[in-house]
Amino acid sequence: MKVSSKKSKLHPRNRHNQGYDFTLLTAKEPALSTFLIETPAKQTSIDFSDNKAVKTLNQALLKAYYDVEFWDFPEHNLCPPIPGRVDYIHYLADLLSADNQGTIPTGKQVKVLDIGTGASLVYPLTGTAEYNWAFTASDIDPTSVKLAKQLAQFNNRKINIKLQKHPEHIFNGVINAKDLFHLTLCNPPFHASFEAAAQGTERKWRNLGKAPKSDLNFGGQNNELWCEGGEAQFISTMIKESNEFAEQCLWFTSLVSKKETLSVLQQELSKHPVAEVKIIDMAQGQKVSRFIAWSYFEQATREEICQELSL
């Protein structure tokens, strides 16, 4: 069986840099075999416009590489692509290693907060497998929180999952007075309205040469795909609230889908006593993505904190 083409430009530590080994994946998840197709280039692949095929591929990847034996959630929830999500985790590890003489801090002493974890719990599940970090995860949707807790339990992961009871807040109501985190991460809803999200979905179908379907973004609830003001307002709120927890987190970070959003965020960050801001570019195939990171600690202090993790 041929392996699909190499996924270019993924992080060097990403397990999926060499494409998908469908022999291994179908052995781990036999249901995947029913979705395999042959591309015009005579390579084995799946139809990435088929929700069920993509979800089954992700289930196989999680079983094969991340010790996740059970991963399921309702069809209307967002189904995240595993290689791209894991890339964020690896670049976050690099962020910490830059403050730790090039060594990535691992183990449960590294505390990470995932904002908007969703029903898939994808960042904590992959992050615990790759670096054994201790994760806290939050979401505003009670059903997603319930499903995420079930995934953690089924896969024997000790992940602290919280319901954000006040959707207008991000860190308030999630970070307690005694909490300390080395990283926060977030994949924010980037559309500003339902209409914008629907238009984005139509473009995706057209790019795949398919007729548009009714489901948004190949799966995804409203709160997963859009919020008032889009990602610019969401991350701006995150920045404002981060100031209240400046001494409780080493690095605050968020994915930024639209490059033009960066200027808005940099302007907001200039209003706060932030010591350092980093914009980290990532790329998956032809798609370029990025995340923004900010810290209220000077580098010397961050290095001291990271050194303590290795003791």
Rank of each mutant, 00 (worst) to 15 (best):
296 Y>K: 07
260 E>Y: 10
243 N>M: 12
295 S>N: 11
259 K>G: 01
282 M>Y: 11
281 D>Q: 12
276 E>F: 00
294 W>D: 02
271 K>P: 04
273 P>D: 14
283 A>M: 14
273 P>V: 14
269 L>D: 01
267 Q>L: 07
272 H>T: 08
234 F>C: 00
286 Q>C: 01
237 T>S: 15
280 I>W: 08
253 T>Q: 04
246 A>W: 09
293 A>C: 08
248 Q>Y: 09
266 Q>H: 09
243 N>P: 07
260 E>V: 09
257 S>W: 06
288 V>D: 12
255 L>G: 00
243 N>Q: 15
267 Q>W: 00
269 L>T: 01
297 F>L: 09
284 Q>E: 05
233 Q>P: 06
271 K>F: 12
247 E>I: 07
263 S>V: 08
292 I>Y: 00
268 E>K: 11
234 F>K: 02
291 F>R: 05
290 R>T: 02
266 Q>C: 11
240 K>Q: 13
237 T>E: 04
272 H>P: 06
297 F>W: 11
288 V>Y: 14
285 G>I: 09
285 G>Y: 05
273 P>M: 05
290 R>W: 02
232 A>H: 04
239 I>R: 00
297 F>G: 03
242 S>N: 06
241 E>M: 09
278 K>E: 15
263 S>M: 01
293 A>R: 00
241 E>S: 04
280 I>N: 04
254 S>M: 02
236 S>Q: 13
297 F>P: 04
280 I>P: 02
236 S>L: 03
296 Y>W: 10
293 A>G: 08
247 E>N: 14
270 S>T: 04
231 E>M: 13
273 P>N: 15
234 F>M: 07
289 S>L: 08
284 Q>P: 01
246 A>N: 04
268 E>M: 08
278 K>W: 03
247 E>Y: 13
248 Q>G: 06
239 I>A: 03
246 A>P: 10
241 E>T: 09
233 Q>G: 04
252 F>D: 05
262 L>F: 09
292 I>W: 03
297 F>Y: 15
241 E>V: 11
237 T>Q: 14
274 V>R: 11
285 G>D: 12
292 I>V: 05
278 K>V: 12
240 K>R: 13
278 K>L: 15
231 E>L: 11
250 L>E: 12
271 K>D: 07
289 S>K: 07
261 T>R: 04
235 I>D: 05
288 V>E: 15
260 E>T: 09
253 T>Y: 01
261 T>N: 07
270 S>Y: 07
238 M>V: 05
240 K>W: 14
